[in-house]
């Protein structure tokens, strides 16, 4: 799947930038430093916006396109931020046959975002994940660490309302 690119303005803090600089300094002379730096940068920022990738390219003295190429190759890297509440809908086999696809569609419709995107206000992000090991509760979704199981499409508005209030 092609990586979604966030259009939400970058909100990095000076503290985060200091951390990123330290990460770059730590790996600067390592061969193949791009991947570990991207990984640690994602731990700091939660995702890898262009501003962060530029700092990495400049700091490691590698082309920006190389950094971007690596970040789009591996599925673990994300180019979109996580919202205050990250909704993760399980599309594993058990959940999927129990109708989690419809649940994902309902959330998409209500929030106006696709999977791997974040709402403009930064409140919700949506992830389509694979089996989270709760097949007995299928279909299942999580909001941050909260687990909701045995869902129907009609449960979606109630769940979302809990967090929009």
């Amino acid at each position: 799947m092609q990586k979604k690119i966030s259009k939400i303005p970058f909100k990095g803090t000076p503290e985060q930038e200091e951390q990123l600089k330290a990460i770059i300094a730590k790996h600067k002379d390592d061969p193949g430093a791009v991947m570990p730096v991207l990984q640690e940068a994602q731990d700091v920022y939660g995702y890898l916006p262009i501003e962060v990738q530029q700092m990495i390219a400049e700091g490691l003295n590698v082309p920006l396109e190389e950094v971007f190429g690596v970040s789009t190759f591996y599925s673990q890297f994300s180019l979109t931020p996580k919202g205050e509440y990250n909704i993760s809908v399980c599309l594993g086999t058990a959940c999927y046959v129990k109708g989690s696809g419809n649940i994902l569609n309902k959330i998409t419709e209500m929030l106006g975002i696709e999977a791997e995107e974040c709402t403009q206000d930064g409140k919700f992000s949506l992830t389509a994940c694979r089996c989270i090991g709760a097949c007995g509760l299928a279909p299942v979704l999580t909001v941050n660490d909260e687990v909701y199981g045995r869902l129907t499409v009609d449960d979606v508005p109630t769940i979302l309302n809990k967090y929009t209030a």
């Binding site: 690119i5 082309p63 396109e65 971007f68 190429g69 190759f73 591996y74």
Partner: peptide, 21 residues
Amino acid sequence: YVSVIGANNRGFDSVIGCAYE
């Protein structure tokens, strides 16, 4: 020494292009 193009994404979606499309 310019390197503004490269392979983005993976597998069937691979395209040659620039950073951030």
